[in-house]
């Protein structure tokens, strides 16, 4: 399939992890989507950036630590891009070195330009 024929879909992750199920079920969807050879990107904005924070330890919660899965999303599950909004990181006192995996940090304008290319958004 040529790049032009691929459908561009962006997950827009705006929820912090654990407070609700959105992050967990968004990841499950991302993992499945990767197998279909489309152009899938994931963007973390607002509280969504907390999902990528290093050092999450859910042992006392008794729940799975899904932040670990982000480390392999691109290489193993064919997610094409992981974007994080720079302003949302800064507002929360975070920077790139606080994140669990390598991502593309974009400012709002640059991320908005990526959004303009999308065919569909899946907000979580």
């Amino acid at each position: 399939m040529s790049e032009q024929e691929k459908t561009k879909v962006m997950f827009v992750c705006r929820s912090a992890p654990y407070g609700n199920i959105f992050e967990q079920e968004a990841i499950e969807a991302m993992i499945m989507f990767g197998a279909y050879e489309q152009d899938i990107s994931v963007s973390f904005i607002d509280d969504g950036v907390y999902s990528l924070k290093k050092g999450q330890d859910t042992s006392l919660l008794g729940k799975k630590n899904f932040s670990l899965t982000y480390m392999i999303l691109k290489d193993d599950f064919e997610i094409n891009h992981i974007y994080v909004e720079k302003e949302s990181l800064e507002e929360r006192g975070l920077n790139e070195s606080d994140l669990i995996t390598e991502v593309e940090v974009l400012d709002r304008n640059a991320l908005r330009e990526k959004m303009d290319e999308m065919k569909a958004f899946l907000p979580f």
């Binding site: 990841i27 899965t69 193993d76 064919e78």
Partner: peptide
């Protein structure tokens, strides 16, 4: 253990 999910067949 490391990534919390089973690997893709590809991996």
């Amino acid at each position: 253990q490391k990534y919390q999910v089973a690997p893709a067949i590809k991996s």
